[in-house]
């Protein structure tokens, strides 16, 4: 009787084991399906011109997306410079200062709510809070700008980075902190030398997720960065981005431009792939050097 029950449990357990493996398999299959499709539709249109030229306006020979690739890199760079430090330190606050419950508790809700704001709303906010005031203060003929776009992207990044950082810091065992404090380290030393480095790998995962999320955004840039067909590195002007250019081409009527849009998606994907690998390498090396020290 007992043996039968154990046997049943074992079979059930094995079945669940197989199911878990199947889950992982399904997710990987979906990845291959989506990215395989994107390669299939995009690869044919990637050539040297894609990386070296800017849009010509010509329907049969639409040029390339150099401006947009550079634009996206600069926009993401700007957004990261603001968004990552702010997000990480807010995450530290949520995790390490949570005894300040009067503020930390509500703040967690606030961060959660902010992660769910539709990106188009962030664009509207950027328009009202950055673009319109700039128009009133200056007499620039156009007040849409790369800065406004980067601000909108940072707005989306900050709560994501904050919440993932918090979750990862919470997973650092309490004993680490106690050990550090017991050895006479200050709280700042404990956080910077022990807690953050321990969670560095998983925080960088969170940062990649946040970066990836904003890298693919079109809606918040539409009313802030506006986009541009020109090669510009000055973020105080309307600023190009891959997603905006892709969106314009993908929704437009002309087949040659559409092909360029599909190629653009593939390039964006490849860029994120590289960032992903780079951060992962840094994180692994970081983890191994720490292990070496310990």
């Amino acid at each position: 009787m007992i043996r039968a029950r154990t046997e049943r449990r074992r079979i059930f357990s094995n079945a669940m084991f197989a199911l878990c493996a199947a889950c992982a398999g399904v997710i990987v299959a979906l990845l291959l399906a989506v990215s395989g499709y994107l390669v299939w539709i995009g690869a044919g249109s990637i050539n040297a011109a894609f990386f070296t030229q800017i849009p010509t306006g010509d329907l049969n020979d639409p040029g390339g997306m150099r401006h947009a690739i550079e634009g996206t890199i600069i926009l993401l760079g700007l957004a990261s410079v603001v968004g990552i430090p702010l997000g990480v330190s807010a995450g530290v606050y949520l995790s390490e200062y949570q005894h300040e419950w009067l503020f930390a508790g509500p703040l967690r809700f606030i961060a959660d709510v902010l992660t769910g704001v539709p990106s188009i709303v962030v664009g509207i906010l950027g328009y009202e809070l950055v673009v319109v005031p700039v128009a009133k203060m200056t007499s620039n003929s156009v007040s849409f700008s790369g800065y406004a776009g980067a601000a909108a992207l940072a707005f989306i990044m900050i709560p994501i980075v904050a919440r993932t950082t918090e979750e990862m810091l919470r997973l650092v065992p309490k004993s680490y902190r106690e050990g550090s404090l017991a050895l006479g380290a200050s709280k700042a030393q404990t956080v910077l030398r022990v807690v953050l480095p321990t969670a560095f790998g998983s925080i960088s995962t969170g940062v990649v997720l946040a970066l990836a999320r904003v890298a693919g955004e079109t809606a918040p840039l539409l009313f802030t960065a506006l986009g541009s067909r020109l090669l510009t590195r000055n973020p105080s002007e309307p600023f190009p981005s891959l997603t905006l250019q892709i969106y314009t081409y993908a929704t437009g009527p002309y087949p040659e431009q559409k092909k360029l849009a599909w190629a653009g998606i593939l390039v964006l994907l490849a860029m994120l792939f590289l960032v992903n690998i780079a951060i992962r390498l840094v994180a692994t090396r970081h983890a191994s050097t720490r292990l070496g020290k310990a």
């Binding site: 329907l59 890199i73 600069i74 760079g77 700007l78 990261s80 410079v81 003929s141 156009v142 849409f144 506006l226 541009s228 020109l230 510009t232 590195r233 000055n234 973020p235 002007e237 309307p238 314009t248 929704t251 437009g252 009527p253 002309y254 431009q257």
Partner: peptide, 29 residues
């Protein structure tokens, strides 16, 4: 690195007129 990218980009080309318009999708091409 981020800041230097941006500052480096600030060098705007002189003597150029830049103007912008925005709106309807239909005539955009």
């Amino acid at each position: 690195v981020g800041v230097s990218i941006v500052v480096g980009g600030q060098v705007a080309s002189a003597g150029e007129v830049r103007l912008g318009g925005a709106g309807a999708t239909f005539p955009a091409p």
